[in-house]
Design a protein around this nucleic acid. Structure first.
Length: 202
DNA sequence: TTGGCGATTGGCT
DNA sequence: GCCAATCGCCAAT
């Protein structure tokens, strides 16, 4: 596969401090994970904001051993293990010491698609990065990446847009039981790699 | 020390 | 679309 040209790391100064603005900003950007054997790249097409004071957010009850990464300066990885089976990747937001984050819910695979698809049998390419747990499985992200600085030299980082970003949609978040009505999910309209019901993809 | 619950997924109807 | 599996976290005991 030919490497993507004009792809560079995002600087922290480019990331909006505000959680909701960051969630919107990240649509169309990319996540890159360098492995010994090459790199995996996914274009972010769906995010959710978990801002300050949000009862659905993991930072809501204060800092604990698990969620400490949410309180790091914006642009750090917060990874946690969910439902006994999936790892979920967030980008920390807000100022250092303030808990907030953006959940990455879906990617469009760009580089390393074949390796992402390995062990996934006949799963469609469109399904490989659809959903927060599948996203981390495709990108080979787990607890070892928790706390990494995505804006510093390192194996996991955020990159600039590689192609024009389509219209951005906004909806309620998925899978919550608290604060269910807040429209804090962002997505690229009509992208085939989105998670959630059809009505939340248009 | 314990048990209810969750930012999900995959399989089945 | 519905539901069970699965297990670490953490609030309450």
């Amino acid at each position: 596969m030919s490497p993507i040209r004009r792809l560079r790391r995002l600087r922290r100064a480019e990331l909006p401090i505000d959680t909701v603005k960051l969630a919107r900003f990240l649509i169309g950007k990319v996540v890159v994970h360098h492995l010994n054997t090459g790199r995996l790249t996914g274009r972010i097409v769906e995010t959710e904001a978990y801002p300050i004071g949000d009862a659905a957010g993991h930072a809501f009850r204060g800092k604990t051993p698990r969620n400490g990464s949410l309180f790091l300066q914006r642009g750090h990885a917060y990874v946690y293990f969910s439902y006994g089976s999936s790892f979920l990747l967030n980008v920390s937001s807000e100022r250092s010491g303030v808990g907030g984050g953006v959940l990455l819910r879906a990617i469009e695979p760009l580089e390393g698609i074949e390796r992402m698809a390995r062990s996934r049998g006949k799963m469609l390419i469109a399904d490989i990065g659809r959903g927060p747990g599948r996203l981390t499985r495709a990108m080979k992200v787990d607890l070892r990446q928790d706390g990494l600085d995505l804006c510093a030299p390192g194996p996991l980082w955020l990159g600039t847009t590689t192609q024009a970003t389509g219209a951005i949609g906004r909806s309620v978040r998925i899978g919550l039981s608290r604060n269910v009505r807040r429209p804090l999910r962002f997505y690229e309209r009509g992208n085939p790699h989105l998670s959630g019901p059809k009505r939340l993809r248009q």
